[in-house]
Amino acid sequence: MNTTVTQDMSFLHLITSASLPVQLVMLILVMISFLSWWHIFRKLFVVRSEINKTDEFEDIFWRGADLNSLYQRATSSRYESGSLERIFAAGFGEFNKHPAGTDTEAVMESTRRAMRATYQREMDRLESHLSFLATVGSVSPYVGLLGTVWGIMNSFRSLSSVAQATIAHVAPGIAEALIATAMGLFAAIPAVVAYNRYATATDRLATRFESFMEELSNVLQRRSIR
């Protein structure tokens, strides 16, 4: 190759010739990026299956299925139940535990509490790792920028020892430093997009769960009065 005019500007060479702090930043960014992509895919599957299961359960429930058989189905351990099903099972189980003739208000109160507890646990499960995506989305560009700034600082510092500065002296240093920014952005952009997507999806699921809880309380209350 023509070594006098142009340096080796291949991607790998740029990374390996970068200074240690920049390399460290790059390593951190690669790890962050990998983790964030992992969570993105995990959440994708979780949220998608949750939406499907909620659809399915609501469909069965509002078609007027027998509550007892639904409860059986929800508590059978072989079956993978969805969040909504678990909320229903918690509420219905609590409701059934009270002997007939107990004060309706008290029964409904405890039923609602049981459902709310399960609801909160489920929401926590659904929202787990979302904050990680948000953090990655907001922080990794800065981390990348830190690496870039460091690299550019270094390349300018080395310029001070040269009498006649040309762009060729600084260019490789800046190029390798900019790789850090590229990595940060590569990690951040999908994380932000995924965070917004999943936050919306879980919000909508939460609304559905809450309205279902209210409706189920009504159904159970009517049942207890009768």
Partner: peptide, 14 residues
Amino acid sequence: SINVLHFHSYSEPK
């Protein structure tokens, strides 16, 4: 039963 429900079927898909 709530706890029982809580523990089973938390396996995450894929």
